[in-house]
């Protein structure tokens, strides 16, 4: 039987619930990682993408329709807008559109396409840390100075995003975490959720 692409009440509620769970996991991981500068600046995004992958896989597999990723990314962008980073809203909408393009032709039925979509999302998620430094450096520096940080400390704090070696490491690490998370996510879906009959 051909399944309609029109969203039902259940789809809306499932997407909203799992999107908030994804955002809550991201915020909690980021807050825990704030304890240490290195973990916060270098590893936190990777950890986030690793932990969120199973939830994303479940959401896409369960709703089984287009625009789930776009809805999730838009809500994420709105959360960043509320935190004063308005430029992350259009950025995440574009990231959501890229995920939708990858998943366009029944991507929710293909493990490979979902893995590709989440890996791309993981790569693009780095924007949350990099965009303020690349495009809004003056604002970022003024904020850091206002917080009481000395110039030398600011320089060492942001050196992870300004030195090419660290930058490559962060991007590769985050993307790899997203990819590994996708493999774990698809494994969990097969092991638990399909067996439980919820998909």
């Amino acid at each position: 039987m051909e399944k309609s692409n029109k969203w039902t009440v259940r789809d809306v509620i499932t997407t909203a619930l799992l999107t908030v769970l994804l955002i809550a996991i991201q915020l909690v991981v980021n807050m825990v990682c704030m304890a240490n500068d290195f973990v916060s600046m270098v590893l936190s995004v990777g950890f986030t993408m690793l932990l969120c992958a199973p939830v994303y896989f479940l959401m896409v597999s369960r709703v089984h329709k287009r625009f789930v990723s776009l809805a999730y990314m838009t809500i994420l962008g709105l959360v960043f807008l509320a935190m004063g980073n308005w430029y992350l809203l259009p950025y995440y909408i574009v990231a959501g559109i890229i995920c939708e393009i990858i998943l366009w032709k029944n991507g929710w039925e293909s493990k490979k396409k979902m893995t590709a979509a989440w890996t791309a999302a993981s790569l693009l998620y780095n924007g949350v840390n990099l965009l303020p430094i690349w495009f809004f450096w003056d604002t970022y520096e003024a904020f850091a100075r206002a917080s009481g940080m000395e110039q030398s400390y600011i320089d060492s704090f942001v050196s992870y995003y300004t030195s090419p070696g660290w930058l490559v490491f962060i991007i590769v690490f985050t993307t790899a975490c997203g990819f590994v998370g996708s493999l774990i996510g698809s494994g969990l879906i097969k092991k638990h959720f399909k067996k439980a009959g919820v998909l």
Binding site: V9, L17, L18, L21, V55, L58, R62
Partner: peptide, 22 residues
């Protein structure tokens, strides 16, 4: 896994219950 799997299953159940209620 012990935390995330039951939590996600419960999320799906809640989503179903809320949909029926709505």
């Amino acid at each position: 896994e012990y935390v995330i799997v039951p939590l996600l299953l419960r999320c799906l159940q809640i989503a179903d219950q809320l949909s029926v209620s709505a």
